[in-house]
Design a protein around this nucleic acid. Structure first.
Lengths: 348, 348
DNA sequence: TTGAAAGCGCTAACAA
DNA sequence: TTGTTAGCGCTTTCAA
C-alpha cells in the first residue's frame, strides 16, 4: 500500500502538498497539482482513513443503530441512509441491537470509540438510563429516528405521524363494526413510535366510549415468534377479538403464520391490519390494510439533518414529522364475522 | 474524552502500562493492574479505535459488501454476521452496492481505505474486471458468500447447493406436468449462485429432453419493478408459461404484484416458485414452493472462516457448500391449468 | 515488571 | 505557493 510519502517522493514534493492537492486546497499551482495527480495515479495511492481520521479528529463515518435489521422497514431505512450518506462521503458503521436493549448501550459506546462523526439512532429501548446518559453526552451530533430521548435536547428527531395514523386506522376498524380489537405491540413504552401508536389506538376507542380488556393488548419482543404466540393467546381467548392490529412488521409475520396454521381466513374469519406497510401486507391474499409512509423521505431527511449539522449549516436541532397514509385493503373490508372465532385445537 | 495519557497520569504510571493492563499482558503486577483499572473506571476511559488501529495496522472492523440490503435474505445474513463478528470484537462496516456493479468496486476500495481487517462479499457482479483485480490484490482475507471470483484463489467461499436445489425444484414442476416454465433471474452470469441456479434449471429440462424458447428466460436487475415487468412480458406471451420460477426475492415480490394486479390466481391460474424462502413465500395464500436454507449457518460459517483466517488458525482457504431444501407448497400443487392463461388487456 | 521513546500515516500551523 | 515541523492516541520495541 502506497503512503502519502511515497506519492510525495514520486512527485518530488512534500507530503503536505499531496494533501493540499487531494483536499482541493485553493492555493496550488497547476504544475504541482499535475505532478501530484500523476504520482497518485501511478502509485494507486488511496489515503488511509484511519490515519486521516486520527489526525483530523473525524472518521468520515456515521454510526447507525437499528433495533433489528431483519425488519424490512429498517432494512429499507438503512439502505436509503447508506446511499444518501455515501453521496456525502460518509460510510455507515452499522450496529444492530438485535432486539436487546443492553446492546443499544454497547452500540453507542462502540461507535463512539470508532470516532463516528454522527449517530442515527433507532434503538430498541430509548428509556434505558444508561442509553439516555450515553446519548446525552455524545460528543457528536445525534439524529433520532422514530425515537425521542429525554434530556437529549441537542438531537434532531425524524418521526412519522403514528398517533394520527393509528387513530385513523382504528377508526376504520370501528366503522366496520369491530368492537373487540386485539393489539400486538413490542415492549410497552420503550419507543416514541410505540407510545404514539398506542395513544392513537386508545384515542380512537375512547372517542367511541369503548374500553378493551387488558388482555387484548399483547406486548412482547417484536419478533415473528412472539407475534405468533401473542396471536395464539388472542385466538384462545374465551371472547376472542374480531380484528387484530399488528404494530411491528415482524409481529405481523408471526400473526399471519398462526392464522395460517389454524386455518383462520384473513378478512372473513378475522380482520387484520398492520401499522407499517411491508411487501407482505399488499401481497398477501387478501391484501392487508396498513399504514404506509415514504421511507426514502424519512431516511433522506435524517441524513440531511445530520449532514447539515456536521457541516455547520444547521445550528439548532429540528423535529420533522412525516405523514402516514391509511391503505384500506381487503383484510378489513368484510363485515364483522357473525360468530366469534372458535378457539382451535390445532394450535401450533 | 479521556485519553490513555490521562489514565496513566491518574494512576501514576506510564501509558504503556495502561495498554499492557487493558490488553491482558501477562507480566503485570497486581498492584499496577489494580491502580490502572481504578483510573480507567474513574475516568471512563475507552480506547480510541482509530489511533489503536493506525498503530496496530488493524481496525477491528470487517467490511461487508451486499448487493442489496432490502433483500430479506441479505438482511438476515447481515444480521447474523453482525452478531457473530461482534462476539469476536469486530464491528461491521456495511457497504451496499444497491444493485450497481460500479458500487461493488467502490466498496472494496473504500473498505480498504478504512483498513478493515477482512471482507465478506456478496457483490452484484463478480465478473467485473476491476472488481476481480481489487479482490485479488486485497491485503486482507476475503470470504465470498454465494460468489466465486476468478483469480481470487486465497478467498474462502461459502455457498449453497443452488444447482441441485434448483434442479430438484424444476423436476418437481415438470413432474406436475409443466412444460412451459418462465424463469426470472437477475443479470445473467454475474454471480456464481445465479449461474448455478440456471445450470440446475437447464439440467432438469434437458433430462426430459425439453428446450425452452429464450424469451421464457427473463433477465433484468433484481428488483420488484423489473420482476413485475418481466412477469408482464411472460404473461403477454402468445404462448405464456404455465409456471414461473422467480430466482431473487425482490423479483418474487414484483411477480406476485403483477399476478395480483391481473387477477391471475397463484396455484390455480399459474404455478409459482421461488429459489429462496423469504417470509412472503410461506405466508402467501396459497403458500409458495421454495428452496430454503439455514441462513444463520451460512453467516456463521462465513464469519468463522474469516475469524479463523485472521487469528492465523486457518492457513488455507476453504470452500463450504451448504444444503438447500425443497419446500413443496400449494403454489405448485394444482394440476396444470387446462387452457393457457389468456394475455390480459388490464396489464399495468 | 515497568518506563521511555519512537512512529503508524496523515494534516494543520507556521515559515519561508 | 510550497516545505518543514509537530502531533493526533495508541502500541511496540528496547532499555532499565
Amino acid at each position: 500500500m502506497a503512503t502519502i510519502k511515497d506519492v510525495a517522493a514520486l512527485a518530488g514534493v512534500a507530503p503536505a502538498s499531496v494533501t493540499r492537492v487531494l483536499s482541493g486546497h485553493p492555493n496550488v499551482s497547476p504544475r504541482l497539482r499535475e505532478r501530484v495527480l500523476e504520482a497518485v495515479r501511478e502509485s494507486g495511492y488511496k489515503p488511509d482513513l484511519l490515519a486521516a481520521g486520527l489526525r483530523r479528529g473525524s472518521s468520515r463515518t456515521i454510526g447507525v443503530i437499528v433495533s433489528d435489521i431483519i425488519n424490512p422497514l429498517l432494512a429499507e431505512v438503512v439502505d436509503a441512509l447508506e446511499v444518501k450518506l455515501r453521496a456525502h462521503d460518509y460510510s455507515v458503521l452499522l450496529a444492530n441491537s438485535h432486539g436487546d436493549p443492553a446492546r443499544d448501550v454497547e452500540a453507542v459506546s462502540l461507535l463512539r470509540q470508532h470516532r463516528t462523526d454522527g449517530l442515527i439512532v433507532m434503538v430498541v429501548d430509548e428509556t434505558r438510563a444508561e442509553l439516555k446518559e450515553a446519548l446525552r453526552t455524545s460528543p457528536v451530533p445525534v439524529v433520532l429516528l422514530d425515537r425521542t430521548v429525554e434530556g437529549c435536547d441537542d438531537a434532531s428527531v425524524v418521526t412519522s405521524d403514528h398517533r394520527r395514523g393509528t387513530r385513523e386506522l382504528t377508526r376504520h376498524l370501528l366503522d366496520a363494526g369491530h368492537e373487540r380489537i386485539g393489539y400486538l405491540t413490542g415492549p410497552l413504552g420503550t419507543t416514541y413510535a410505540g407510545r404514539e401508536r398506542m395513544a392513537g389506538f386508545l384515542a380512537a376507542l375512547h372517542e367511541r366510549g369503548l374500553e378493551l380488556p387488558e388482555r387484548y393488548i399483547q406486548s412482547s419482543r417484536a419478533t415473528p415468534e412472539f407475534g405468533q404466540r401473542a396471536t395464539a393467546a388472542l385466538l384462545d381467548d374465551p371472547e376472542p377479538p374480531t380484528a387484530i392490529v399488528a404494530g411491528p412488521n415482524p409481529m405481523l409475520v408471526g400473526m399471519l403464520r398462526e392464522l395460517q396454521e389454524r386455518g383462520v381466513m384473513v378478512g372473513t374469519g378475522i380482520a387484520v391490519a398492520c401499522l407499517d406497510d411491508p411487501p407482505i401486507a399488499f401481497l398477501h391474499n387478501p391484501a392487508i390494510t396498513a399504514l404506509s409512509r415514504d421511507i426514502g423521505e424519512m431516511a433522506d431527511t435524517a441524513a440531511s439533518l445530520l449532514v447539515a449539522t456536521l457541516s455547520g449549516e444547521m445550528r439548532q436541532p429540528r423535529t420533522v414529522v412525516l405523514p402516514m397514509h391509511l391503505r384500506r385493503r381487503a383484510s378489513t373490508a368484510a363485515p364483522v364475522p357473525a360468530a366469534p372465532v372458535a378457539p382451535s385445537a390445532t394450535s401450533r
